[in-house]
Amino acid sequence: MQLEVNITGKSFESAAGKRHDVLDNVTFTLNAGEVGVLFGPSGCGKSTLLKILAGLDGNYQGHVTRSPGMRLGMVFQEPRLLPWRTVEENVRLAAPEVDDGTLAALFEVLELSAHHNHFPGELSLGLARRVALARAFAIEPDFLILDEPLASLDNALAGRLRDQIATLVASRKMMTLLVTHDLDDAVRLGDRLFFLSPRPARILHVETIAAPRATRGEPEIGEIKRQLSQLDLANM
């Protein structure tokens, strides 16, 4: 399984008829077992890029080559659950083939075991995010997209959820693409970091972290972050 991204441009026309360029040149490949991180300022076009990669938007220049039969799991920025279905129904609807054992294990990791029969309207944002994560993992994806899964959660909760995501990502050999604007999350979860420019987005710098994710200790993480923060991204 491999994802080849070769986008040369993406623009849209505003209601006033003005042309807006959202993406410039974005070229990279992602292999199975690898976690790519898209790192860039807010509003640089990350979500647009994700939509293209997820096959939700076909209106762009260039091409994206996906392996045939690739299963996509996606965690949107907002949880996007069906409010009229329970937590379990939401997950099973996307993943009808999931067996009870797998689902129970998944709910255990994400601390959702007590919430099977709750409706999304009864959940906090943190819990709803986890249901969205459970849904994406339940389909046993070949390609996982995580769009800012830790945004607007408090530090303790974000930290716990980050560890849970790390556990789940490590449990399966798939391509993962994470979008974040938090350097700490990027360094802890990613293998390759793609630094994006402000709009129209292009890749400024690619940082490959050699040490496997599980073996990175606090000092190494601190060192990588220190080096990265010295990058002069503004002049690339």
Binding site: K51, A54, G55, L56, R71, L72, G73, M74, F76, E78, R80, L82, R85, L93, A94, R135, I139
Partner: peptide, 21 residues
Amino acid sequence: PALDEMATAFALPRGRAFRHV
């Protein structure tokens, strides 16, 4: 439209998407 995108991303078959989404 956000839920439509969700249904497309998770490749829900048309019938199931219509009934549940």
